[in-house]
Design a binder for these strands. Structure first.
Ligand SMILES: [Mn+2]
Ligand SMILES: [Mn+2]
Ligand SMILES: [Zn+2]
Ligand SMILES: [Zn+2]
Lengths: 182, 182
DNA sequence: CCCCTAATTTACAATCATTCGCAATAAAAC
DNA sequence: GTTTTATTGCGAATGATTGTAAATTAGGGG
């Protein structure tokens, strides 16, 4: 569910989580609590796969099974606590769902997967309007801009690039935490 | 590559396809030609998986292997002839890439997968602007609005719905061909 | 036309993310 | 505490997609 309050999920505590879980007939478990807390303490701009979350928690000594990670991520995405993203990599990524005005979108290079976040309020308005027009309840609204680094283009993309070729921009990591204004 | 000419892909014929394939060191094969023609003759609003394309062509007596379908769809998406869509179903969908002003976006119910297309010119402008700002080459730009039918909400979503429950709206098919104006 | 070479197709195996089945465990309602 | 039923964890299963290697074919140059 798209959250329209002005507060971030950081202020969403254990009691709130329990309440919201109970509302839909679910229970608060240590696993669910830890997973949500983990996302709440993650720096902005991280987009993690289920496997990423699994490894990160395991390193902290938490031993939550991968199945449970998958189940929890899906549940929390449905509940609107997390956002499920389809970037360009063959697996889903998750981030904390930050309501308006922190709601944002993604620009991603299909070659190096570098991902840049940006905000744009009119897009959310479009989503609200379209859902209302069709009589549906809005859950999320994501503009994904697929792009390609000029370095890759010069090397012959969209033909196959040499399998060992890595986009130089990928070196800064595949994710930037900077949210640029529209 | 995002195509900005005013013509639809319908007017993209065999010679054009050959030329564009040769430009990137690829060959024109009967398989590729048939797959593109298939999409060019598909009614607006269809979003097909690789398996869908495979079955449809097979029914027409064309025997193209599933592997080839996968590879061709990916190649043509890279070339900008097709658009690769991440709707809500666990597999990719493809449609003919219609350049501006036919460029459109999708509103999809995460329960019944009903998909509604709509146009909005300002979103494409946003995509162009963001890609330029970051110095990347724009490929595609898709607003995907995730929503839920009120019928599903009333039945308890986001808790698990009875496994046999089907959204009544799914009966009209999961896709509508109508493009509504923004 | 014919030849040559590299691109492509094909059948099939393999991979990878994700889900499922089920016995064991543990919330939370009473 | 007891009971109920959601949840976990494990391994197996699934399903979309990709890889492999041999056979085929497109298309450029004679
Ligand atoms: Mn993000
Ligand atoms: Mn469409
Ligand atoms: Zn790149
Ligand atoms: Zn629905």
């Amino acid at each position: 569910m798209l959250r329209t309050e002005g507060l971030g999920m950081q202020l969403y505590d254990t009691a709130d989580l329990r309440a919201e879980l109970h509302q839909i007939g679910c229970r608060l478990t240590p696993q669910r609590e830890k997973i949500l807390k983990f996302f709440q303490n993650l720096p902005q701009g991280n987009h993690l796969s289920a496997e990423d979350v699994y490894q990160a928690l395991r390193q902290r000594g938490e031993n939550i099974s991968l199945s449970t990670i998958y189940r929890s991520l899906k549940l929390m995405a449905r509940m609107g606590l997390l956002r499920e993203l389809e970037l360009a990599e063959g697996h889903k990524h998750y981030e904390l769902n930050q309501p308006y005005p922190h709601h944002h979108h993604h620009l991603v290079c299909v070659q190096c997967n570098r991902t840049i976040e940006f905000t744009n309020t009119s897009i959310l308005k479009t989503g609200i309007k379209q859902a209302e027009k069709e009589g549906l309840h809005l859950l999320d609204c994501q503009l994904t801009i697929h792009a390609i680094c000029p370095e890759a283009l010069r090397r012959g993309w969209p033909s196959l690039l040499p399998s060992n070729w890595v986009c130089p921009r990928a070196l800064n990591g595949t994710v930037t935490g900077v949210i640029t204004q529209n």
